[in-house]
Design a protein around this nucleic acid. Structure first.
Lengths: 110, 110
DNA sequence: TTGATTTACTAAGGATTGCTTAGTATTTGC
DNA sequence: GCAAATACTAAGCAATCCTTAGTAAATCAA
């Protein structure tokens, strides 16, 4: 219950993708003239992007938008992994955790 | 990559907790005078709360703040379940999904 | 069903925050 | 050290949110 995790997550994911602030902004559809300033303001926590802007950034970085709002590091990592699972596997995992699975342990398809 | 899922998730979680818009706002620390209007604006998607406000609402509803930003329904459910796991179990699950676990299947402690 | 009460909702303006512009500072590679 | 690339910032205009003051709709007891 504190400040937004957006700046930290943005920096993590941008660096992992080896993109500059400006290039990431341009790829996310921000005007070339303001991409550098805006992305820097987001990453330094000076201003917060709206959900649509962050969704476009997420698409470029191949992470789910919700990742940027996640404070717990384990959950943040997990969200990226889940984002790369098939929908059927995501559902299977959810069922298992809800205790509604008949199998004694969770197992993904090979 | 569209409009924010905040209104929808807010309504889901508030109704599950059986709270009125105004009461939820007050419990989250919003001034009594404006709690009703603000919570309604959030739930109808007229305005978007900042992360800190949403974190306080999340605490009242016992869900993680990131839940409100999650578009995928399976992932949204999963985030609530994970939020109620012990940190050790969250980590164990993350390790399993990363393929770094030696055991053939994931298993929580009894 | 009617009236009272609770709950949901809304317009409008003042307050706050974000975006654009026009740069300066810092880092990188030669 | 110099040039180019990258990171960063202040300030004003633009957009969004919060407060106020209510109206509309739903609930429920009589």
């Amino acid at each position: 219950m504190s400040a937004s995790p957006v700046p930290k997550r943005l920096k993590e994911a941008r660096q992992a993708a080896k993109l500059t602030q400006e290039r990431l902004g341009i790829l996310a559809g921000i005007d070339e003239e303001s991409a550098s300033a805006r992305m820097n303001q987001y990453e330094r926590g000076k201003h917060e992007p709206d959900f649509l802007t962050l969704s476009r950034i997420a698409a470029v970085l191949e992470v789910p938008a919700t990742y940027f709002y996640t404070e717990d590091n384990d959950v943040a990592e997990l969200l990226i992994l889940l984002h790369r699972l098939l929908p059927a596997d995501r559902r299977k995992l959810a069922q298992y955790l809800k205790g509604e699975s008949s199998s004694p342990a969770f197992q993904l398809e090979p």
